[in-house]
Write a protein that binds this DNA or RNA. Structure first.
Length: 223
DNA sequence: GCGACAG
DNA sequence: ATCTTGTCGC
């Protein structure tokens, strides 16, 4: 996987917005995936009251979901959390962690939105286009859009819409449990994305990839 | 003007 | 995201 090194990173929200508007057209919203053997989950944790960012990646085999490799990167936090601009805070540490991998993931599940974003360029889209790798946005809560409640059974989903446009899916990954917000990141269609999220979520509300990365990012190694 | 707002 | 214990419900 080619991971960009010399990216010009914005220092203001205004610059960041221009980059989103300039890059949004590069997002590929249909299936353009290889055979999937390795699936990665990425997540962040913060230390020192937010001054330090800890990025973690977990690579699992697919479809058996066995842990294959992990990587962690620690860096000073460079960008504040501003709704709509999450990727400018999270992408640099994630790229640094990905650089340490020996394995090349075929698909990355991101902790946040993809197309379900005000300018259709959430974290998953940004990472996917930077890496030229298929990505899916898997968020634990709604950011934008409206939807009906999906049926209580695992696998049920309803469209997440912004006006008449379908920007994602509200997916029940566990029966009777609060659903997840799934959206296209890059090089994958929504229905395919939903199928992979379900395949990666055999037991808990969150995908195994996310759970593993989350644990590493927050420095909790056991359980 | 007011409320909402991924992590 | 993070600060934090026990507790209610399936």
């Amino acid at each position: 996987m080619k991971i960009p090194t010399r990216l010009s990173w914005p220092t203001s929200i205004e610059e960041a917005r221009l980059i989103q508007e300039q890059w949004r057209d590069r997002v590929i919203t249909s299936d353009c995936l290889p055979e999937i053997h390795w699936v990665a989950g990425v997540d962040l944790g913060f230390e020192d009251g937010g001054k330090t960012t800890r990025a973690a990646v977990a690579v699992l085999s697919f479809p058996d979901l066995k842990l294959v490799e992990t990587a962690i990167a620690i860096c000073p936090t460079i960008f504040p959390y501003v709704p709509g601009f999450l990727s400018f805070r999270e992408a640099p540490p994630i790229l640094k962690a990905l650089r340490q991998l020996t394995t090349t993931p075929d698909l990355i599940l991101c902790d946040g939105q993809g197309l379900a974003h005000p300018r259709r360029f959430g974290l998953a889209c940004h990472l996917g286009t930077l890496l030229n790798c298929p990505t899916i946005g898997v968020a634990k809560s709604r950011f934008i859009g409206t939807h009906n409640e999906p049926a209580p059974k695992r696998g049920s989903w309803t469209p997440l819409k912004d006006g008449e446009e379908i920007i994602g899916a509200v997916l029940r990954t566990r029966t009777q449990v609060k659903p997840l917000y799934v959206s296209i990141g890059h090089k994958i269609g929504l229905e395919t994305a939903i199928a992979y999220v379900l395949d990666c979520t055999p037991q808990y509300r969150l995908p195994e990839t996310t759970r593993l990365a989350d644990r590493l990012a927050s420095n909790r190694i056991q359980s």
